[in-house]
């Protein structure tokens, strides 16, 4: 419940800022445009969202840091971090509250893409299993990306720096298991790199089969970076 108070504040603050609206408008617009305009939908004549979801990891590389960049960095820049940390909150509640707030914003952004499957349903017979799997997968990937973004936002008081670092780190996690990287490595190292690749886990879920290893991977990334986020804040008390 204590986290919910923080989550609500983060969520509604996003709708008070122009950046929030730009993010919420841009993400569905780009996702839809990439799918309908650049994708092969009208060439293959198949009502599937596979191509739509193939763009999601790359859109999240930009979107997740954009949502997360403000959350700690702005508190620190404006001094409200001091106010927040002297309220009787446990640090875990603050970290989780901010994460859930950011995750809810991402949920709304994904909800705004609901026009895509609804349009496809009108055009033909859409198989909703992979669609739901895709959205679940996007939320999990988004959660992991946001946890990284929040950690980086806690490391700086500059939102732009937080965003840029977030983009770089997420690019790294999306490219790490690519053929260009793994083919240059010994097979055992290549397998480890592939197991850390965000896109690899994402696509395994979007196939419509819940892969518990991938779900656990995303929750593991969230746990690691949220703990790191808490440690960064706590460490500042001692510096």
């Amino acid at each position: 419940m204590r986290s919910l108070l923080i989550a609500k504040r983060e969520f509604f603050t996003a709708f008070d800022s122009p950046v929030g609206y730009v993010v919420l408008a841009l993400f569905p617009a780009l996702a839809s445009a990439l799918f309908f305009v650049l994708g092969p939908l009208f060439l293959v004549g198949e009502t599937s969202m596979r191509d739509f979801f193939s763009w999601i990891p790359w859109l999240l590389v930009v979107l997740a840091p954009a949502i997360a960049m403000r959350i700690w960095a702005e508190e620190r820049r404006s001094g409200t971090e001091e106010l927040l940390l002297t309220f009787p909150f446990q640090l875990g509640h603050l970290v989780l509250g901010k994460f859930f707030g950011a995750w809810a914003i991402l949920g709304v952004a994904l909800l705004f893409t609901a026009g895509v499957p609804l349009t496809l349903e009108l055009l033909g017979d859409l198989d909703w299993g992979p669609v739901l799997g895709g959205y679940v997968s996007a939320m999990l990937l988004g959660g992991a990306s946001l946890a990284i973004g929040l950690y980086l936002s806690a490391c700086t008081s500059n939102q732009i720096v937080a965003w840029l670092l977030g983009v770089v780190v997420l690019m790294f996690f999306n490219l790490i298991g690519g053929a260009a990287t793994t083919s240059a490595m010994p097979p055992s190292v290549g397998r480890i790199l592939l197991s850390l690749d965000f896109g690899e886990h994402f696509h395994s879920i979007t196939r419509g089969v819940i892969d518990f290893g991938s779900v656990a991977f995303y929750f593991g990334v969230m746990a690691v970076f949220l703990c790191a986020n808490g440690l960064v804040i706590e460490r500042r008390r001692w510096s």
């Binding site: 504040r9 603050t13 404006s78 001094g79 409200t80 001091e82 106010l83 002297t86």
Partner: peptide
């Protein structure tokens, strides 16, 4: 506690 420079959520 009222911190120095009074940080408040201006939004």
């Amino acid at each position: 506690y009222l911190p120095e420079n009074n940080p408040v959520y201006t939004d």
